[in-house]
Design a binder for these strands. Sequence first.
DNA 1: TCGCGCGTGAAATTGTCCGTCAAGAGCGAC
DNA 2: GTCGCTCTTGACGGACAATTTCACGCGCGA
Lengths: 139, 139
Amino acid sequence: MKLSVKSDYAARAVLGLARHWPDVGARRAEQLAAEQGVPSNYLVQILIELKANRIVKSQRGKEGGYLLARPPAEISFGDVLRAVHGQVFDSPAIGDGQCPPELRGAWKKLQKALENTADNISFQQLLDESADKEKMYYI
Amino acid sequence: MKLSVKSDYAARAVLGLARHWPDVGARRAEQLAAEQGVPSNYLVQILIELKANRIVKSQRGKEGGYLLARPPAEISFGDVLRAVHGQVFDSPAIGDGQCPPELRGAWKKLQKALENTADNISFQQLLDESADKEKMYYI
DNA sequence: TCGCGCGTGAAATTGTCCGTCAAGAGCGAC
DNA sequence: GTCGCTCTTGACGGACAATTTCACGCGCGA
């Protein structure tokens, strides 16, 4: 029900990187953290998890930093959520044999609904939204 | 996002009570707890919250106990979830001014999806499901 | 008035989240 | 090769919520 700030931070970081796609240069973690209002030491941990799930890539050394591992259109909200938590949605009831089967079905329905929604939001869409909004201001 | 066992316990309790609707007698908390595999002292607290939200009623004294406050058809999963936690879905991002508006929109989309799904599952449906299943075994 | 079961709050325990820190390892520049 | 920059990794600790148990007061029927 209540999701952690971690997922929020992760989404912000990915969006921050997506805004520079397909820029060649990598972005430093600290810079990204400052820009998104996230404690940098914490963001680093999140970025590592994102990297383990092939959502971002990293580059060491001078001029190093992070960049997206694939185009924003191929990264969904669900991907990011699954990267930082194990799953998009989890209820102890689903794995509990004591739970009546009707209830388990209900929990799974909620799970499906959330996963489908999350998987259908790509970061490309978010970029397009902000682009549209700018255009509106422009007119 | 992992939701707590509390919501699971609450759902089980309501379903347990719904199975006896519209029986007149109240069901004792301890009996309900044993039947659903829930620590009884914890269940009592949950029942109090459910009562505060007009989902169940209580009766004191001998022959006392709990019973549904309204027909199972008028109790949704969303009602129960809102009773035990404050909201069905909450992200710190939604109330955070630092969060880019596109992201806030995305979080709200998830929120809406979950709430709609939860509100569209009534406990009457769950009762019907289990009835259907029994019928299938019967054939 | 007595017994039964609800009502309520407090305490103990546990676990997870959030954030920080420090030492290690790879890459490029010189 | 050495130096500086940056990621990498693991550990640590306080804060906070979830889970559970306990103790005692209250209301209802017999």
